[in-house]
Structure formats: C-alpha cells, structure tokens
Write a protein that binds this DNA or RNA. Structure first.
Length: 153
DNA sequence: GCCAACGTTGGC
DNA sequence: GCCAACGTTGGC
C-alpha cells in the first residue's frame, strides 16, 4: 500500500466538495501532466491513501485524507469537447489521460499548512517541498506520512 | 496580480 | 534533436 499527495484548488474543488459527493466518492479528473499521469496509471492502486492538498489559495496545505477506491481508467473528460480538460489528441480508442476514483475519509483537525511543513527538517526531502515543484500528484513516503500526521498530536 | 520555475510545442 | 516561445502552476 502506498501513500500519495494530490493537489486541488479549493476554489475549483475542495475537500468539502469531495465529502459532499454521493458515497463521498468521485473521480479525480483533469490531470494533464505526464509525470502525474504515470504515477496515477502505473503505481497508484485501490486501497492506497492520499493527502488532499489545497493549492493556489490563501492557506495552501494538507486538508484531509482520502482513499483510492478504483485503479486508473481513461479520463473521459479528455475527449469531451465541452470540458475544460478537453484534449483533441485523446479519444476513447486511444486515451491519453487517466483518472482514479477517490473516497473521502476524513478532514484533519486543522489544515497542515505548507508553511508549517517547510519548518520541519524531517520533511526536507519531501517532493512537495522541492524547489519549483509543480507536480499535482506525487508519492509520499511512509515516514513522511506518519510524521505529518504526528504534527496534529 | 506578479512572477519564478517549469513543461510543452513546433520550427528548423 | 535543439531550443526559443509560449502556457501553466502555484506561492506569495
């Protein structure tokens, strides 16, 4: 079982939006970066856990935890001309982009902000904190996962 | 809104 | 295959 961090802009889709879905489950669409896609398609598996990270907002940070409940499958928004995520190079026959299904597990008692994460040397090698990092889906090590959760104690 | 850092595109 | 131009991400 692996751990992940997945970013979303809360103005577009927040952890509360996920929690409000039927069965608290939704598909994670719109990933249009190859590295993020490859993580999702090749390594992410049903049963994995992920931090829901709020990005590009007033308080960037980890807002909660969700579970991957379906392995990657083609992102159908990629061939929907009406979708903001439309990619003319993707089709049902030759899907270029993929998504997984995620289920809300819980919100953290408080948001663990990016600013706070940066203050811990234990997290120095975390991908999220690397210079210029723009990946929207990235692995989190077991140690980092446990350490981050311990910050709330 | 600014802008650094990056990824992608496309001419050559 | 190179690389300039462009578009996007995301913190601040």
């Amino acid at each position: 079982m692996k751990y992940w961090l997945m970013k979303s802009e809360p103005d577009t889709y927040s952890i509360d939006d996920l929690a409000a879905q039927p069965r608290r489950t939704d598909h994670w669409d719109g990933i249009r970066n190859y590295q993020a896609r490859n993580f999702m398609r090749d390594e992410m598996k049903k049963g994995d856990l992920a931090f829901f990270y709020h990005s590009n907002c007033s308080e960037p940070g980890i807002a909660g935890i969700m579970e991957i409940v379906r392995d990657a499958y083609p992102d159908f928004t990629s061939w929907d001309p009406g979708s903001p995520y439309h990619d003319p190079k993707s089709s049902p026959d030759r899907p270029r982009w993929f998504m997984v299904d995620v289920r809300f597990k819980r919100k953290l008692k408080r948001i663990i902000t990016l600013r706070e994460l940066k203050q811990h040397p234990e997290l120095g090698s975390m991908k999220l904190l690397q210079r210029g990092n723009r990946l929207s889906i990235m692995p989190v090590s077991d140690r980092e996962w446990r350490f981050i959760l311990s910050l709330m104690d």
